[in-house]
Each structure stands twice: as C-alpha cells, then as structure tokens.
C-alpha cells in the first residue's frame, strides 16, 4: 500500500450495481502500485473532516472515486489543503472529468498512474471555492468588475461566472483555468411573441451571450440572489467573486489537450 494515496469513495458506490466496477478499479490500482488509504463518504459524515483525516495520516494525493458530484463535495475546501487531486470517474455525470481529460472507468487508473500534474486557478464566491462555474439564473443583479466597470441586465437574464469549461458554438472552450481570469457570461432575457419564439430559435440560432474577462468583482442586487457554485446552492444579496490563480494541483489526462481549448467537434460530451 502506498500511504501517500488516499482514495475517497462516494457513498453511491455502495450500491451493488457498482460492485464489479469498483472491484476492477481496485485490481487495476493494485497492479499499478497505487493502492492507498480508503475513506468512504456517507450521508452524515463531513467530507472535509474525512479528507483532513487522511491528510493528517500522510496522504499527499487525494483521489476521488465517483462522479462529478463527488468532486463538488470536496472542491470547496480542497484547494487549501497541501494535496494533489486525482479523480476516478465511475458513473455519470463526468463532464468535469472530460474537461480534465480523464476517461471514465478503468482507463482513469492509467491517467492517475501517469501523474500529469497541472496547477489550476480556482474561482472563489464569498469564502467558497469553485472549479467550474457559479451560476445565477433569472437575475437582475449587477456585476461590478475590477473596481472599474459594471455589467447589468436591465431586463434580467442569466449570469455565469466561469473558471473552467464552457464551449462556444465554434467548439472553442471559453474559460481557461490557467489564465488568472474568470469569465462572466451573461444571457439576457428575450421578450418575444409566443408565436415567433420557436420559429426564431429554429431559424436564427444566434449567439446572444456577453463574454467579459475579469479578476475580481461583486455581484449585488436589491432582491435576494440565488444560484449555485459547482452545484452548491448559494443565496444572498451580495457576493464577492474572484479568481485565485494557481491554487489547485490536479492529475489530468493528456487526451484532452485538444478538447479543452481547441476544436471539440470530436468530443461527444461537448455539444
């Protein structure tokens, strides 16, 4: 056993239908000499306490076994720990795994063994980290950026603050998690007669997204804002948002070098 590795299993993996997949993973990891400490997330167990326990036991690499939701359970505190993040996606959703170039299932063990380590920026909403994006839907909040200018949606709309991910219509990834910037994506509401709404959507297909890059800012509104950062729900009148450069070290796959910031047409997960 390699004590510098700690594998954190999501609680859904106790379901018998994942038994074979997990057994195969463990066999493959043992073959690669990557077996390590094992911890299991459960409903009434703090993910933070569990991970910190393994870090105190000497773990240098925390490997999450599960799906993207497993990542979201630890991402809000993990960047502050002196560890490298590994990820073995076993079940859907695996969108973040795709962005990181990690294939689902057994091949992820080989990616883990290859140890191609990248350092990524993390977004911060209030005191909570997020890897991918913070989203506020149907909001009229104003976004003040870098103490210089303000973006607003006079008729309301959706607002996303991206650190990683997002794909344009041309197949280009929009947010690079190594540029030291966050990307604000604003999509205003459209008032259209009901009769033309579907026809226009079919015929135009136009891109009505606003894209602005920034380092820090404040989202504020007179009415309560509700949203989510990496699927964690947040609510309040005002949030400070910023990017923390070079905060998280992640083991990634080489295969997504093109898929992340190039042409994603060959990537079925990016529609």
């Amino acid at each position: 056993m390699n004590p510098s590795y700690a594998f954190i299993y999501d609680d859904f993996l106790t379901d018998p239908r994942y038994g074979d997949a997990v057994a195969a993973l463990e066999t493959r990891l043992a073959t690669l000499g990557l077996s390590g400490q094992i911890g299991r997330l459960t409903l009434f167990r703090s993910a933070k306490e569990l991970v910190e326990h393994h870090v105190h036991q000497g773990a240098k690499t925390i490997v999450l076994v599960g799906n993207d939701n497993t990542l979201n359970k630890v991402m809000w505190f993990l960047p502050d720990l002196p560890v490298i993040l590994g990820y073995l996606p076993v079940a859907e959703p695996t969108d973040i795994a795709t962005l990181l170039g990690i294939p689902p299932g057994l091949p992820a063990c080989d990616t883990l063994g290859a140890r191609l380590i990248e350092t990524l920026d993390m977004g911060k909403l209030g005191d909570r980290y997020f890897l991918t994006e913070a989203v506020f839907e149907r909001t009229r909040a104003k976004l003040a950026m870098d103490d210089a200018f303000t973006l607003s949606l006079p008729r309301g709309g959706d607002m996303a603050l991206r650190n990683l991910g997002g794909v344009s219509r041309l197949g280009q990834s929009m947010a690079n998690a190594r540029d030291g910037l966050l990307e604000a994506v604003l999509v205003p509401n459209r008032e259209q007669p009901l009769s033309t709404r579907i026809l226009k959507r079919l015929s135009l297909g136009e891109d009505n997204e606003t894209h602005v890059f920034f380092k820090s800012g404040t989202i504020a509104s007179d009415s309560p804002i509700e949203g989510h950062a990496d699927l964690f729900a947040v609510s309040g009148f005002e949030f400070k948002v910023s990017v923390v450069p070079n905060k998280l070290r992640v083991i990634m796959g080489r295969g997504r070098r093109v898929g992340v910031l190039g042409n994603n047409q060959n990537n079925p997960n990016h529609q």
Binding site: T150, L151, L153, M174, N176, R178, R190, V212, R254, V260
Partner: peptide
C-alpha cells in the same frame, strides 16, 4: 510535458457585450 491548457500570450480573448446588456464605467 506541455500543458494541456493553452496559455494565450499573443492576445487576450475577445470581449463581447451582447444586446440586452449594459456596461457602465471605464
């Protein structure tokens, strides 16, 4: 090994202020 993320050194990414959005300030 080269980074899997492209680091743009030539130019910043394009900024778009779409219809329905207001920008105020510098």
């Amino acid at each position: 090994a080269p980074s899997i993320f492209h680091t743009s050194s030539k130019a910043s990414p394009a900024t778009v202020i779409a219809k329905g959005v207001r920008l105020e300030g510098q």
